[in-house]
């Protein structure tokens, strides 16, 4: 039995849009096991991305507690959250969100700028991680010189380069063709299995559930189903 890295208790979140309050998440209680691969699923507007944003510390709940490695991040201010994210969270976005003016290696180095590592160590580490994701021959390519699948692999390299506690992925295969999506899912699966990384992923892709150890379904802001698989 794995302990939970993420503990969510009675989380509520609402937005004020178009003159009215919209409840996005209602009384969410969830645990994310350490070293596990958790998938959040649900129709559009179900609140899965909002929940992922809260777990990643880029948004704050209205009420409830959200503990990661025992630390309740709802009590941190913006500056503390930024510092916490830099050491604990690796982000993978649907549209990769790479810096177009930086090469693949420089993009991967980006989170390490906050680590205080010397330039040479940063470079070597970035090159190593790019080799792990199979892009050792694309170090000096700019994002617009790479395919979508390759860009997402650079983004994955950027997410893991600082060895974060948790990797959050928001529809990482949503902008990719079938084969590239499969490759990315395999890569994330490997990271989970071989490197023991805890991953929380939002997806519409049913194939993604094959690699997951826990699948959480949300609908209209409520957690409607939570099941663990035998992966």
């Amino acid at each position: 039995m794995r302990s939970n890295l993420v503990e969510i208790n009675n989380i509520k979140k609402s937005y004020f849009r178009g003159g009215q309050i919209i409840e996005v998440l209602r009384n969410i209680n969830l645990g994310v096991p350490e070293g596990g691969f958790t998938v959040l699923m649900g129709p559009s507007g179900s609140g899965k991305s909002t929940l992922l944003n809260l777990i990643a510390g880029i948004d704050k709940p209205d009420s409830g507690s959200l503990k990661i490695s025992g630390l309740d991040i709802t009590g941190l201010d913006e500056g503390e959250l930024a510092e916490w994210r830099s050491g604990n969270i690796g982000f993978i976005f649907q549209f990769y969100n790479l810096m177009p003016v930086l090469t693949a290696r420089q993009n991967v180095e980006l989170p390490l700028l906050l680590s205080g590592l010397p330039a040479k160590s940063r470079r070597l580490r970035a090159e190593f991680v790019l080799e792990v994701v199979g892009l050792q021959d694309r170090l000096h390519h700019y994002p617009n010189e790479l395919s979508g699948g390759q860009q997402q692999r650079v983004a994955i390299a950027r997410a893991v380069v600082s060895d974060p506690t948790l990797i959050v992925a928001d529809e990482p295969t949503g902008d990719l063709d079938k084969q590239s999506a499969k490759d990315i899912l395999n890569l994330l699966h490997r990271l989970n299995l071989e490197a023991g990384k805890t991953i929380v992923m939002v997806t519409h892709d049913i194939n993604a559930t094959h690699a997951a150890q826990k699948v959480v379904n949300l609908d209209k802001g409520e957690l409607v189903d939570e099941r663990t698989t035998d992966h």
Binding site: E83, W84, R85, S86, N97, L110, L113, L114, R158
Partner: peptide, 13 residues
Amino acid sequence: TREFATMKALGFK
């Protein structure tokens, strides 16, 4: 804006 938001998400102040 999205690039700057990404950098903020990565922890840049």
